[in-house]
Amino acid sequence: MAKKQELPERVFPKAKDDAAAARSAGVLPQTSDPAYRLAYADSEFLMRDDLRPVRFQLELLKPELLLDEAGIGSTFVFYGSARIPAPDKADAIVDAAKTETQQRIAGKLKAKSHYYEVARELAQIASREGGEEDGKHQFVVCSGGGPSIMEAANRGARDVGAETVGLNIALPFEQAPNDYVTPHLSFNFHYFALRKMHFLMRARAVAVFPGGFGTFDEFFELLTLIQTGKMAVIPIILYGKDFWSRVVDFDALVEEGVVAPQDLDLIHYCETAEEGWAYVQDYYQRYTEKRFRKGRGEKH
């Protein structure tokens, strides 16, 4: 019997091999001109305005591929302010305040500093209890990768030895990932739209802490996507009922007829980490039971 022939894995060279070959070409007027560069290895070409659709696709693909390779099945997303201090830094902010207005604002930030510890503890619980399913890590903590509430979330996951995702954004002023994001799960975005998309593509629960414009943007886009049926309902935990009731009059939206009463059922208020995790667990217990009844052909 003839020996089985081993077939080559591929017949075309890999892109990185062609790029290396191109770099080894001799120095000529032709090879020195940017036009000669391989298109995918030409960063100046990729920055052209005409290439915006390609950059969109790259920002969609890169995190998706790397998260999948890292075995991230689902995430627990944390939204919240980049300005709320950790409790041990709150007094320094108050002491640094000079004017009466600054002192008043510093006092309000200090009053919200306990949410740093709540976010950290919730992240600890989710990372410890999230488990695995189909070989994928579930409820992996994901934040915007920045300071304050975002830092607290990533820090909580790190506390219990879990990996944690950071979705940073390139801004005109300095913006670096916090120290607790897992390096190979630390991503940087140019487009806010793609970043917000990645927040929700794997999200199976979202905790929203007090925050400003950025938090509002992320929170209300999430509500809109669920309200309009563009994504499935997932647990949305809103921390700080006093804060949210003061800055957004949800009941007034219902009274004005621009929001349906049942839309407010999408939000569940909590104050402690234990309450938040219990709500997520209860939600998915009911979800599982509903699917079980449906699978047996029972009415629901």
Score class of each variant (00 low, 15 high):
85 P>E: 07
140 V>W: 00
188 N>L: 14
281 Q>T: 14
275 E>C: 07
47 M>D: 13
156 G>R: 04
50 D>Q: 13
287 Y>T: 10
194 L>N: 14
236 I>Q: 10
292 F>K: 14
87 P>G: 04
88 D>C: 08
127 S>I: 04
84 I>T: 09
221 E>Q: 09
42 D>Y: 00
87 P>V: 02
26 G>N: 10
14 K>E: 15
65 L>R: 10
269 Y>S: 06
88 D>H: 12
150 M>T: 05
270 C>P: 02
7 L>F: 07
200 L>D: 13
116 Y>T: 01
220 F>A: 05
58 L>S: 13
184 H>V: 07
287 Y>L: 12
178 N>C: 02
230 K>M: 11
145 G>M: 05
292 F>H: 13
224 T>N: 10
281 Q>C: 13
26 G>T: 08
162 A>M: 11
43 S>Y: 05
129 E>I: 02
74 S>M: 05
116 Y>L: 00
109 L>W: 08
8 P>D: 01
283 Y>K: 08
69 E>T: 10
122 L>F: 09
26 G>A: 14
130 G>D: 03
81 S>D: 05
197 M>Q: 13
297 G>N: 06
57 Q>L: 15
85 P>M: 06
195 R>Y: 08
104 R>A: 13
44 E>C: 02
19 A>T: 10
285 Q>D: 14
135 G>E: 07
218 E>D: 09
139 F>Q: 05
104 R>P: 02
144 G>A: 05
158 R>E: 15
90 A>W: 04
295 G>Y: 00
97 A>C: 04
168 N>C: 12
258 V>M: 09
215 T>H: 06
253 L>N: 04
154 N>C: 01
34 P>S: 10
184 H>Q: 13
183 P>H: 06
165 V>K: 04
90 A>S: 10
255 E>T: 08
32 S>C: 10
68 D>H: 11
124 Q>R: 15
294 K>I: 11
77 V>E: 03
188 N>Y: 03
161 G>F: 06
108 K>T: 07
5 Q>V: 13
